[in-house]
Amino acid sequence: MFVTHLHLEQKVPAGLAPPLFKFWRGVSLSLETSWYLCVTARNDGGTETFLVAWEVELLEFIAAAGANLSVRSIARIDKSRVQPGRWEMRWIDALWTPSPAEQAEAWQVVMRFEGAPELHDEHLNTVGQSDARQLVFSESLTN
């Protein structure tokens, strides 16, 4: 989640932004866990970038993208395991919903990172192949 700070609010003149939208020059994170950076393409040729917390929200975001917005790329951002105080970002090549057996083990997603052959669950454990998974995002299908 993001925490906003009043002194960082960007005042936007009426008519330049959708009603009820607020803009911030900076925010802080209250949830220091994995985040997903989703780059989307709009029908008008523009792009938008979203930060999504939690895998279940990521799956809902992809499903809700619909006809007016398509997910072009996804990156996972994690706190560094090696360098305290730093974050690491890796691009995701493909994302699946787990098989029913994997869901019983509380898995929410299976992903493959760019340039890596192995698959991972949301806890970054290496997992094997399964034909029972459903592909929900593939970088190669969006470009």
Rank of each mutant, 00 (worst) to 15 (best):
D78S: 08
R72L: 15
M111E: 08
I74Q: 07
D93A: 03
P84Q: 05
V127T: 14
I92V: 07
F113H: 11
W91V: 04
D121C: 06
V56K: 14
D78E: 14
F113K: 00
E102C: 01
Q129S: 11
V109A: 02
V82D: 08
A75H: 15
N68V: 09
N68E: 15
W107H: 07
I62Q: 06
R76Y: 09
A65K: 06
D93K: 04
A75L: 11
I77H: 09
S99K: 03
V127D: 02
D121F: 04
Q108C: 09
V109N: 00
N68L: 11
W91I: 06
A64E: 13
N125H: 09
R133M: 01
E105N: 09
R86S: 08
S70N: 11
E105R: 08
V109R: 01
D93T: 12
V109T: 09
V56F: 15
T97E: 01
R86W: 07
A53P: 09
H123V: 05
H120C: 10
L119C: 05
G85W: 00
A75E: 10
A75R: 13
E88G: 03
T126L: 10
A104M: 13
R81N: 13
A106V: 10
L119V: 13
V56P: 10
D121Q: 07
Q83H: 08
F61A: 04
M89N: 04
W96C: 01
V71K: 02
L58I: 06
Q129L: 08
A53L: 04
V127R: 01
W87Y: 11
